[in-house]
């Protein structure tokens, strides 16, 4: 009986997320257009005929890889990152609209509600990521030689899922501290952009060392997004990047635990609220 309650509540949360997503027609469109622009415009401008050398950490069978191909895992991460942050936005929206009160007064453990919401959001993120791949990759495959097989993206599914889970958990954690929808612009500037740009999504990290940008290099090395991107890159080649998997799983657990702590009325944000 208890298991049924847990299951049906998860279904309820998922249905609501999917329903709301389906009503926001522009959300899927922008989730695809944003990385598509990077792929078709940025990569076309920055990439060279020689390709890019991933350096020591190379999961590809060749040393110089087509730039379109190199940035694809990074752009996939971009879709997941934006979608994860969108989940935090939906939590803030729920708080502003009062729906959060209904969620928090549901007779289920709070950790379960948060984890269910996280998984529901993750399912949506992964759907968006695969939509991006399905729409954009065939165009690139037709024009440039790719070493990654289509099957590589299917094999990469578990890694894409846990990567998405980590970014969703980060979004959940941020939603503890973002009090108003207007503050989302801050999330863009202080979370999304630094996380994306200071990573191996757009360039191999050895380039930072080469250019003497040591500080940025070390920042990228401690950025969990870097490990997520490299984990997906490796998985798309049928390889396992253990270090990446470990960092992503560890970060996911830390973000979830901190979120649960943040939403606990005895220890959390609610306690910080001052009433006069």
């Amino acid at each position: 009986m208890y298991f049924y309650h847990f299951f049906i509540a998860f279904i309820g949360l998922s249905i609501r997320e999917i329903k709301k997503f389906s009503m926001q027609k522009g959300r899927l469109f922008s989730a695809i257009v944003r990385p598509a622009l990077w792929l078709f415009v940025f990569a076309a401008g920055v990439g060279s005929a020689k390709g890019v050398d991933p350096g020591i950490l190379n999961f590809y069978p060749i040393q110089n890889i087509n730039y379109f191909e190199y940035i694809t895992p990074g752009l996939l991460g971009m879709v997941l990152l934006f979608s994860g942050m969108q989940s935090s936005l939906s939590m803030v929206y729920d708080r502003e609209m009062g729906v959060m009160k209904i969620l928090l007064t549901t007779p289920l453990p709070r950790w379960y509600l948060l984890v269910s919401k996280l998984f529901a959001g993750t399912i949506l993120s992964v759907i968006q990521a695969y939509c991006f791949l399905i729409i954009c990759l065939p165009i690139i495959y037709l024009t440039t030689p790719f070493v990654t097989n289509i099957s590589g993206w299917i094999i990469a599914f578990p890694c894409i899922f846990i990567f998405s889970l980590m970014l969703g958990a980060l979004g959940l954690l941020l939603s503890v501290y973002i009090k108003q929808l207007e503050n989302f612009a801050g999330t863009m500037n202080f979370v999304i952009f630094p996380m994306f740009f200071i990573s191996s999504a757009l360039y191999p990290l050895w380039r930072l060392l080469d250019n003497g940008a040591l500080f940025v290099y070390y920042l990228a090395k401690i950025n969990p997004f870097t490990y997520g991107v490299e984990m997906v890159r490796a998985a798309s080649q049928g390889k396992i990047y253990y270090e990446g998997i470990l960092v992503v799983i560890l970060c996911t657990l830390i973000f979830i635990l901190l979120s649960i702590f943040g939403y606990n009325p005895q220890k959390s944000i609610f306690k910080k609220s001052k009433k006069r």
Binding site: I8, A9, L13, K19, M97, K101, I102
Partner: peptide
Amino acid sequence: IVFQQPTIDMELSVLENLNFHARLHGL
């Protein structure tokens, strides 16, 4: 509970809101 401020999802229909609550309560 009926809260002072509305706690209903404005973007969903009446039935969807009720179904959502029912599922959260495992009904």
